[in-house]
Nucleic acid binder design. Structure first.
Length: 886
DNA sequence: GGCTCCCGCCACAGC
DNA sequence: GCTGTGGCGGGAGCC
């Protein structure tokens, strides 16, 4: 649910229907104990008598009721006795009774069957109970030395259920790493050994993907819709709901879904698997607070990725069914329990997390290889995190074909057109990262900056080699100092798939992660908790509007972040990559491109977000050194361009100005993007706005973001889409409103990284030698050798003098988050500002963001078709959560 | 009448 | 073609 229940929400505890559940409460922690479910099937008459001793009674089944009216026969007597017994015992008794009745009444075999049917109530066959029985067969913490293999046939036979049912259980257990598949028909039992780790990982993934925020958004939208429905009739209501769902943030996902049912279906099967759904479902609990998730919201989130308007109803129903299946198993694991959430409009089924709250902080390594991966599960074949990410957000792209919404198709076309134009210039083999419209803008900048940088470098190149550190950056521009830190920030961002707001799923181990470019970092930082909040100052400068970072929310953003490939297509990508490529020719090419684009720049200029997103991509494959170099180069270019473009963009800026916090005249730079360089002024609440605003998009991003990182090939597609999104209103892209820009300028926004997980290996540091080298290399000033800092981490850790810091002072924000702070800032005038990471992890943070989002006029301009303003201010409604089980 | 969710058809994948 | 998996949704049980 939007994971967050408003304070007003109440949990209403109700008696669980399934005996099993009730029992679980008693037996918590005793997995092996045979379920001692309360009486079932007991006749009403007998119930009263049994109540006292038996505990809470479950609703009598039909079978039981029928007999009550019948004469007291041995059969009915048996039924009653059986019902009083625990499930297992009851089953045995049932069998015996059946057998006996059959033998006694051989003439009436039919009756025996009927009796059996009557005796075995539906509840007795529930998946939850079955799972409970299954769990009772194995220890929570099995001895590794012992053979823990599970034969499905054996289990099915022993439990007397169809194998099909066992598959359902196994899928859910597998999603939690409680079992792993060895071969067909064979699984290995892990018990709860890996459970904590798995949950921690899921929690992390959930946070990074902003599930909590997503839930919040969905919930708010649902409320809004409900409100609207009052004014609507019949189908109209439904239609609107469907359409709204599509267009809304959820829609982000929706859009991705399918126009192409066949392709989607072909590839989607696995993504729709119970395993994936189970993980996602669990994630919702782990990221939401209070940990209560309604089936409705969960279903919407799960459907969001690939739902199509037409199929919404059916899909929703199906999802609900599956969620019940999963919930039953999870309940049997005592991880959740059923409750009801009472809202203004009624009561909704929900589940409350009753599993462990204190989860071990997942180690990056773990994420990559550990838990999940350890199990030879399909999911685990990849790094666990990766699996989660993909599974969770089975991004449309990654999916089979990633069916696109019509609006996206249009966007893609337009993007492709842009690409063609852009690509008309000779392209270097290097991947082009930037994708968004910004690409053009940057391209121009890059070209110019390259030339400028080259000059500077020429002059200083010699010195730099000797003194790799800061000086170079300084030489380039005062702002360059900021750049130095970028690498770190970028690294953080890289790790995470870009989601909206850093929604990317952190999959790769820190070591493996490529360090994102400064730009990427910037954008990422703000939203992603883990990302080095630390990046702070540097990120601020370059990153500019936080809004950029937010972009990730949009599907496109996700894609962008991902693969380099994706980037290649988009113009922005080109820009990014170009610096990397370094070849002197690139500069020329870029210049040519930029010149061509400049004309368009003012009008078409993509939102800052797009820019940031674009840059994030390079991270994966690029060597750290390159990345850093790129970042520095970019910054220098940006600086240059800013100056240059100030004049051009002045018009645009005007809009932005109002939104922006007061800036020093120097900062004023007309171009929002360029804000990067500027020292951040006082932090304004406004700065936060962007993040919230992005959130809605993030939903979309969910769909995409995963893919890009993991699937390079697909990423390209994504990138394109993203690109379009920014330009066109349809895909949830917004016109570059002043508000949007505003955030970008505020460097501080990015600083607070939301990610709960401390960015691993991310360091903020001044310009590293690597950057210098890279820049030089790009400019052709020096041989292509890699920077001294072989490892990204090293590079990141290098102390940076920050000589390049602009006098005005960049503000280095000290992230509260565990993320490493900048140690490198020695000797610099650094203002340490501890900024709470508002946006972030906790659901509250998420709410906060959303609220800001909704309140912000800008927030969903395009998204919320009707009543946007109204929607924006959606008060949280009180929810009463009533536990099903007493 | 809505909520739950069992049941088994049938598609898909691997052999 | 067979077998193993498992997505899917009809529809019955339950409230």
């Amino acid at each position: 649910m939007s994971s967050t229940l408003s304070e007003g929400q109440k949990l209403i505890s109700k008696p669980l229907r399934s005996p099993f559940k009730e029992r679980s409460a008693k037996d918590k922690g005793h997995v092996f104990v045979e379920p001692q479910t309360p009486l079932k099937n007991t006749s009403k008459a007998s119930e009263a008598a049994l109540l006292e001793n038996m505990g809470p009674l479950t609703t009598p089944t039909k079978g039981l009721e029928a007999p009550s009216s019948e004469p007291w026969t041995p059969t009915s007597n048996l039924k009653m006795l059986i019902s009083a017994a625990s499930p297992e015992i009851r089953n045995r008794e049932k069998e015996r009774a059946i057998n006996s009745s059959e033998s006694e009444n051989s003439q009436e075999p039919e009756q025996g069957e009927e009796v059996e049917k009557l005796q075995i109530s539906r509840k007795d066959k529930s998946l939850g109970l079955l799972c409970y029985k299954f769990l009772a067969r194995y220890p929570n913490y099995p001895n590794p030395a012992v053979n823990n293999d599970i034969s499905l046939d054996d289990v099915a036979g022993e439990l007397k259920v169809e194998r099909r049912r066992i598959y359902d259980i196994m899928n859910v257990l597998e999603s939690l790493n409680m079992v792993s598949r060895l071969a067909k028909n064979r699984y290995t039992w892990h018990g709860r050994v890996k459970l904590a780790q798995t949950l921690a990982m899921l929690k992390r993934a959930g946070k990074e993907n902003c599930y909590g925020q997503l839930m919040q958004q969905i919930r708010q939208r649902s409320l809004e819709r409900e409100d609207r429905e009052f004014d609507l009739d019949g189908e109209e209501k439904e239609n609107e709901e469907m359409s709204s769902f599509e267009t809304d943030g959820d829609s982000g996902q929706a859009e991705l879904s399918g126009a192409d049912p066949k392709a989607a279906s072909a590839n989607s099967r696995k993504d729709k698997s119970l395993r994936v759904m189970s993980q996602k479902f669990v994630m919702l609990f782990l990221v939401s607070s209070p940990p209560v998730v309604s089936l409705e919201i969960a279903a919407k989130i799960l459907i969001g990725e690939d739902h199509v308007v037409d199929q919404d109803k059916n899909k929703f129903k199906t999802k609900i069914r599956r969620l019940y299946d999963i919930a039953n198993v999870l309940s049997s694991l005592e991880l959740i329990k059923k409750v009801h959430v009472t809202e203004d409009r009624g009561r909704k089924p929900a589940f409350k997390w009753t599993g462990p709250d204190d989860l071990p902080s997942p180690k990056s390594e773990d994420l990559g290889t550990s838990t999940l991966s350890s199990a030879s599960q399909p999911l685990e074949s990849r790094s666990s995190v990766e699996n989660c990410a993909k599974n969770l957000f089975s991004s449309p792209e990654t999916k089979r074909g990633f069916t696109r919404h019509n609006s996206l198709v249009k966007l893609v076309k337009s993007i492709q057109d842009d690409r063609r134009k852009i690509n008309s210039a000779p392209s270097s083999p290097v991947k082009m990262t930037g994708d968004s419209a910004n690409g053009n803008f940057y391209t121009n900048k890059m070209a110019h900056l390259a030339a400028i940088c080259k000059k500077h470098l020429d002059e200083q190149s010699t010195v730099h080699r000797i003194q790799p550190n800061n000086e170079v950056s300084l030489a380039l521009s005062g702002r360059t100092s900021q750049v130095s830190e970028l690498p770190d920030s970028t690294s953080a961002s890289n790790h995470q798939s870009h989601g909206p707001s850093g929604m990317q799923i952190p999959v790769l181990p820190a070591a493996l992660r490529p360090q994102p470019t400064s730009l990427a970092v910037r954008s990422m930082t703000f939203e992603s908790p883990g990302s080095a909040n630390t990046k702070t100052s540097s990120s601020n400068q370059t990153n500019q509007p936080s809004s950029d970072s937010k972009e990730p929310t949009s599907p496109s953003t996700l894609k962008r972040g991902c693969g380099e490939k994706s980037l290649a297509g988009s113009p922005s990508k080109l820009q990014r990559t170009e610096p990397k490529s370094v070849s002197p020719k690139l500069c020329e090419i870029l210049q040519a491109r930029l010149k061509a684009r400049r004309g368009d720049f003012a009008s078409t200029r993509p939102s800052p977000r797009a820019l940031h997103l674009e840059f994030s991509k390079p991270s994966e494959n690029q060597p750290p050194s390159l990345i850093t170099g790129t970042a520095s180069l970019e910054q220098s270019l940006e600086t240059f361009l800013e100056k240059e473009e100030k004049v051009q963009t002045s018009d645009n800026e005007v809009r932005l100005k109002p939104v922006r916090p007061p800036q020093s005249p120097a900062q004023k730079p007309s171009v929002p993007f360029q804000d990067v360089v500027r020292p951040s002024g006082p932090i304004h609440t406004e700065t936060l706005i962007p993040a919230g605003y992005l959130i809605p998009i993030s939903q979309q991003s969910f769909v995409n973001f995963i893919d890009p990182q993991y699937s390079t090939g697909e990423s390209s597609k994504a990138s394109t889409q993203t690109y379009n999104i920014y330009h066109t209103p349809t895909a949830g892209s917004r016109p570059p409103l002043p508000q949007e820009i505003t955030p970008t300028r505020l460097p501080l926004n990015r600083i607070p990284c939301i990610s709960p997980f401390p960015s691993q290996g991310r360091h903020i540091h001044g310009p590293s030698p690597a950057i210098l080298n890279f820049t030089l290399q790009n400019l052709g000033l020096i041989p292509g050798s890699t920077t001294p800092n072989s490892t990204p981490e090293q590079a990141s850790t290098l102390p940076s003098p920050h000589s390049g810091l602009p006098p005005q002072g960049m503000i280095f924000v000290k992230p509260i988050s565990p993320a490493r702070t900048l140690h490198s800032i020695h000797g610099q005038h650094v203002t340490l500002i501890s900024i709470p990471q508002p946006l972030v992890d906790t659901p509250k943070g998420g709410q906060h963001l959303q609220q800001s989002f909704f309140h912000t006029p800008v927030s969903f301009p395009t998204v919320t078709s009707s009543a946007a303003p109204r929607n924006i201010y959606i008060p949280q409604r009180k929810l009463d959560v009533s536990p099903e089980d007493s």
